[in-house]
């Protein structure tokens, strides 16, 4: 080589060596100056999206390195597109977080052909809320409690948004396990539409999350006369006046098989809006994300924002979610058979 070229070449080669030798970078430094992507499977404006964005505003400062967090929506197929993307397409580098509905875990357990991933392989960061399914009936039916309903033994119309929701699933589950005669009227565009239908006496009641009932149906809970909405059954004890003495579903279901089926279904209610990372994400980074998530949930600023926007928050850790997921996937054959009515598509 010409003498003139020798020095620069050596410099380049030497430089190349220095940068390729792995430096002692701890996982702690990994997030410095980086951006984490939160990909939300449902549309902007709803509680799902709200939870993700609120968390995004507070989680960064609880992760060493203070990464920025940006939120994107990847809607479609009820968040299945986002879930698929998280599993198959996203880079498992700790910079991608997918948020999709926990219902897919149950669907996998039931053998739904559309679920092409194994939910046990996701990295579970945590969930910011639990759901408390409840059922309510309108006063215009003349019924006031579960006992009344069982005694009356007549068909009651329950409004629903569509298959795969508590609106649709729970009344059918109750028909199966308690012998109620709920007729699910599906196809309403949203909770508010069902509430209007109730006032119009087009439907008699509905089953959905208590957190939503007490927020959006407040006027109806407080109403008098025919327009009053009366809760009669709930999944878990809540302190509010209207529900603190209500029977719990698990108390009223007698048969062991039925109870097991209900508990499997109920498993997905225990962790809602979960934050996940793609399979193969390095363990240390998942740990950092879990710690950041937990700390953000305790952050007073986060709590204040959540309260202001009436966002229900209950911390569920990643480890707890792993257990729930395992339990659901380990569904007993009998429970699977009982729950098969939830499937609307041909099985695997």
């Amino acid at each position: 080589m010409k003498a003139k070229l020798w020095l620069p070449v050596a410099a380049v080669v030497g430089f190349a060596f220095t940068v390729s030798v792995p430096t002692q970078s701890s996982a702690d430094d990994f997030y410095k100056g980086k951006t984490i992507r939160f990909v939300v499977g449902l549309a902007p404006g709803g509680g799902f999206d709200l939870a993700a964005r609120t968390m995004a505003r507070h989680m960064g400062k609880h992760i060493p390195g203070n990464p920025t967090i940006v939120v994107e929506n990847m809607t479609g197929a009820g968040s299945l597109i986002a879930a698929n993307y998280t599993y198959y397409s996203a880079k498992p580098d700790g910079l991608f977080v997918g948020i999709w509905i926990s219902g897919f875990v149950l669907r996998q357990a039931l053998g739904d052909k559309a679920i092409r991933f194994d939910t046990r392989n996701f990295g579970w960061i945590g969930a910011p809320t639990k759901a408390t399914p409840s059922c309510s009936i309108m006063a215009h039916t003349g019924l006031k409690s579960l006992k009344d309903i069982l005694a009356a033994n007549r068909e009651l119309k329950m409004g629903s948004i569509g298959p795969g929701t508590t609106y649709d699933d729970l009344p059918q589950l109750l028909n199966l396990t308690l012998g109620t005669r709920f007729k699910v009227i599906s196809g309403y565009e949203g909770t508010s539409t069902i509430l209007v239908a109730m006032r119009r006496k087009e439907v008699d009641g509905a089953c959905w999350g208590w957190e939503s009932v007490r927020a959006t149906a407040r006027p109806m809970l407080d109403a008098q006369g025919d327009d009053k909405l009366i809760p009669f059954l709930i999944h878990r004890r809540e302190p509010d006046l209207e529900v603190k003495d209500l029977p719990l579903v698990t108390d009223v279901i007698k048969s062991a098989d039925h109870l097991s089926a209900y508990k499997t279904w109920g498993g997905t209610q225990e962790f809602q809006r979960p934050f996940t990372v793609p399979p193969g994400t390095p363990k240390e980074r998942l740990e950092l994300l879990r710690k950041g998530f937990a700390a953000a949930m305790k952050d007073p600023e986060f709590i204040a924002e959540a309260e202001k926007s009436k966002l229900e928050t209950t911390y569920v850790s990643g480890e707890e979610i792993e257990k729930y997921v395992g339990d659901i996937i380990a569904i007993t054959p009998k429970a699977k058979e009982l729950l098969s009515f939830l499937m609307t598509q041909p099985k695997k």
Binding site: G45, L50, S192, T216
Partner: peptide, 27 residues
């Protein structure tokens, strides 16, 4: 009046109501 949005943008406005702690309806 009802909290029934007619489009995606009104759905988001509805979300904004909730954020502000306002419940659409008789209030």
């Amino acid at each position: 009046a009802f909290g029934i949005p007619s489009s995606v943008s009104t759905a988001i406005l509805f979300g904004a109501f909730l954020i502000q702690g306002i419940v659409p309806g008789p209030d």
